[in-house]
Amino acid sequence: MIEFRSVSKRFPDGTLAVQDFSLVLPSHKTTVLVGSSGSGKTTLLRMINRMVDPTSGSVEIDGEDIASLPPVKLRRGIGYVMQNSGLLPHRTVLDNVATVPLLRGTPKRQARADALAMLDTVGLDRALADRYPSQLSGGQQQRVGVARGLAVNPNILLMDEPFGAVDPIVRAELQQELVRLQKELDKTVVFVTHDIEEAFLLGDQIVILREGGRIAQVGSPADLLARPADDFVASFVGADRGRRVLHVERHGDGNVVVDSDGRLAGVLNGEPVAGTSAGSSAGSTPGAEGDR
């Protein structure tokens, strides 16, 4: 469990990136921080591995204040995946994945064997092991980045817009891959994005941030869609706009789901049931994707 206790961060140039932020991030769940630029989402993420230290307040991991932990040691125990992969350009794929285990003192032979196995886990061909990052596609680099983040089998995985720089088709592929991985590995994932679709797809808990790291709303995707706290959240999740406000229309023998602009969003299978999952399932239909 990760807990932010009334954390604030003011950078030396005077910007207040985060203001009195408190939140609990449950273990083995994916928490997605969503916000536009300037919302402090990356700053918050980087506080978890002490790449940024809060000006006031504290961050705790499993009840322990991380300010008391040496940053380098802390970082070696937390997986980190960033946009543009951040791979070392002068090291091969395999050496990149093995970087952190080697830093932690794992014997070279073992570290390389583990790294090779990790390539399988993230769905990379072992034949790529001896390539350099510049010889990979963007999607492959991102997979290597994930493999490196997972290489020490950390409990916590921090992901800073990891799929932001790849094209939409590859992004969708990587997102599905992450969903699969998370089912398998059950990590505590903290994911930063500005893409609400991505948040709905990956998040168990979604945190919508306003400017300056203030929380607009926290909840499951369905919570946010069904009960947006205010107009800001409603507009952010798209609940006020056509494509998330759906209704059922009778079409021949079946029911089709149509958005408020009258565009077809999907087919309704069976009768509508009571519950709150309608929003999230509609979010991943092809109609919604095509709107991006």
Binding site: F11, P12, D13, A17, M51, V52, P71
Partner: peptide
């Protein structure tokens, strides 16, 4: 203006 602050805590 400075872009995204990449401040790093002293290790």
């Amino acid at each position: 203006k400075p872009s995204v602050p990449l401040e790093v805590s002293a290790a």
